[in-house]
Nucleic acid binder design. Sequence first.
DNA 1: ACTGAAAGCGAACGATGGTCGCTTTTCGAC
DNA 2: GTCGAAAAGCGACCATCGTTCGCTTTCAGT
Lengths: 197, 197
Amino acid sequence: MPKGIPLTEEEQAKRRHGIFHQVVNIFLKKGFQETSMREIAEAAGLGKSTLYDYFKTKEDILVYFFEDQLSDMTEEAQRIAMQNLPADKRLRQVMETYIENLQANKSLFLKMSFESQRLKAESQKQIQDKRHAYQDMVRALIDEGIREGVFRKVNSLLAARMLVSGMAPIVFGSRFTGTPQEMLKDTLDIFFRGIEG
Amino acid sequence: MPKGIPLTEEEQAKRRHGIFHQVVNIFLKKGFQETSMREIAEAAGLGKSTLYDYFKTKEDILVYFFEDQLSDMTEEAQRIAMQNLPADKRLRQVMETYIENLQANKSLFLKMSFESQRLKAESQKQIQDKRHAYQDMVRALIDEGIREGVFRKVNSLLAARMLVSGMAPIVFGSRFTGTPQEMLKDTLDIFFRGIEG
DNA sequence: ACTGAAAGCGAACGATGGTCGCTTTTCGAC
DNA sequence: GTCGAAAAGCGACCATCGTTCGCTTTCAGT
């Protein structure tokens, strides 16, 4: 990490990513709220105030996690959404990658979601905004499907919310009826049947 | 408030109640988490450490609110439950007083419920225990109704949870279809029809 | 080589929740 | 009536927290 040379915004982002990755195990072990900035800085091999060069406040670290994950997912979804395929096929793919992402960081998501309840309202709003961006993405795909005629005319925002929030039990639930893939299939079967044109 | 004379447990409880009552407006105005123990003590006209004689920690103050309210409600419900009436009539009365209590402290309940999300898991568990006590009360009433034959044999715990949690939208919801009394009536109509024997 | 700017750091800050030991008040025993 | 034990109350104090400040170190361009 050179000192006298300015970091581009992209490098900053990489650095933030790296810092978070180095620290994540403390959060998993003793929780976010119970970990002090001193500990975080130490675990990252940084001076405490250097940490503040990358995260404006402590809450920003938690917010960063969600923003990072959610914008990754949104990006990925957008890439899929641009393919030349019927909207329902694309939507299916989007949800598949969605639960794959959730599953890959399952315990981290669980812990962080729980801890995020204790953030200030303002920070929670930041996270919600990113969530909405993802929902809007899904919604746009449903709207496309409606225009294509593969979906009937439904309230697309409501449907998107229903679909996305219906994914949680598949990964985080406590009563499983099969593998996540099977549960996803069953859920999507119901959903698509519900809105098919 | 005498100094050299010991307080009975009951007097302590009264005192706690009084302290909370004197402080409640700060919580409503600037929130619980944002109010320091110094401010609380000052508003109560107490020394800071005296406050700690009545509440072991800051979180205890919030926990106290729920414990107090919920045990009041549980008591009241128990009094109604002992009357010599068919179980369904008693259950109806219980739920009526329930939403009356919620309504009477509506904004306080709202604020405090929101703030309680930020408590430590341990404190949240304390609150949940009291909630369960109330639910168990309702459940017992449903069990009685089953024995009396006015209800059919249902999973009484599940039904109780459904009933109690179904009250929230009546008081705290954002989409009202009538007065709380009307909404309660509609909800209970559905519920009783659902479990009638 | 020199300089300006960026990156990094530890000490220090203000505020917080919580504790300690002292003072004040009261009641009951003598 | 007084004296002492015990309780209630208190403000100073403590450790710790998140956050900021000013200094040092390092490097790129001249």
